[in-house]
């Protein structure tokens, strides 16, 4: 039972991070039908910028409480990532908005490679350790263990997602985003400034990515210029699993993927009597993805049939 609970915690923490990154993919896709492959790299940039700030602060003022240092990292990383997201949209995607869909996909991959190399030039090829500024508290929970960092990730991710839902459902900007997602042309005829809405979408998605990047580096204790690639791939799969273009779908998909990976890796060996081991962990996760897509091609919460004209 304690093992089960521990795997549940592991899966939920991992899943919340996937969900935050997946939201960035799904929001952009919902509005532009563009897969922003550079999104994983924005997450990485968030982690790197925050780490640079945190490292500098930890050296300059060693006495500061960890939460404050982490907060400072976030406060710098979020605007940097938002600016980066806006810049990428303006330079790499907007000029190609009416081009065939393959063209922005290629520029997206190009941007992601550029960002990786820029990060490599600035911060080098080494792994960057996360300074030990955070409280390292561990709490026993019915035989399982949960750390302060894990609790913080769960709470932060949940409140951010709640805020995002409120923004999209209750505000003027949210309404404009939903309208633009349904039809860009009609929305602009109704007086919605489509370019502004798209820019806002990129800004929000990049801010989420920055938070996720800081979470990941704080959780695993390191950052690296390459870290965005695998994280982006997993989060993208989560978005597809939940139904790309659907906010709730990205959250559900992220959490599910985290849980599947966790339970898959933890139990697959014992359940198959050692025939299959944890080396099949990713195979298992993608098997679930394929199975879902066979029965629901547009993902778990994706729109059935054609919604767009």
């Amino acid at each position: 039972m304690d093992i089960f609970l521990q795997q549940l915690i592991n899966g939920l923490v991992l899943g919340s991070v996937y969900a935050l990154v997946a939201l960035g993919y799904t929001m952009v896709y919902g509005i532009l039908e563009l897969i922003n492959f550079a999104h994983g790299e924005i997450t990485m940039m968030g982690a790197m910028v925050a780490l640079a700030v945190i490292g500098a602060l930890a050296l300059a003022a060693p006495g500061l409480p960890g939460v404050l240092v982490l907060g400072a990292g976030l406060v710098v990383a979020i605007p940097v990532c938002v600016a980066l997201g806006l810049l990428i949209e303006r330079v790499a995607y907007r000029p190609l908005r009416h081009a065939p869909r393959l063209a922005p996909l290629i520029t997206a991959i190009g941007v992601s490679i550029i960002l990786q190399n820029v990060a490599m030039l600035i911060w080098g090829k080494q792994y960057i350790p996360f300074p030990a500024v955070l409280p390292q508290g561990r709490h026993a929970l019915y035989g399982a263990a949960i750390t302060d960092v894990q609790i913080a990730i769960l709470l932060l991710a949940a409140s951010i997602m709640l805020m995002l839902i409120l923004v999209v459902q209750k505000t003027r900007l949210g309404r404009a985003m939903r309208a633009t997602a349904q039809s860009r042309q009609v929305a602009s005829l109704m007086g919605v400034d489509v370019n502004r809405v798209i820019a806002a979408t990129f800004a929000i998605g990049s801010a989420l990515a920055a938070v996720a990047g800081v979470m990941v580096s704080a959780y695993y204790g390191l950052a690296h210029y390459y870290m965005g690639f695998l994280l982006g791939l997993k989060a993208f799969s989560a978005a597809v699993l939940g139904g790309i273009g659907n906010l709730g779908g990205a959250m559900l998909g992220g959490l599910l993927l985290g849980l599947i990976e966790s339970f898959g890796a933890g139990y697959i060996g014992d359940l198959t009597g050692g025939f299959l081991g944890s080396n099949y962990q990713d195979v298992f996760a993608f098997f679930v993805l394929i199975a879902v897509l066979v029965f629901r091609p547009s993902g778990l919460l994706g729109a059935r049939g054609v919604e767009r004209a």
Partner: peptide, 22 residues
């Protein structure tokens, strides 16, 4: 008592370590 696997790109080992802990 346990033989587990990961990849040379992973940073998350919570699942396999939890299984090992058992």
């Amino acid at each position: 008592v346990a033989r587990e696997y990961t990849s040379d790109r992973s940073t998350d080992f919570m699942a396999i370590l939890t299984s090992i802990k058992g």
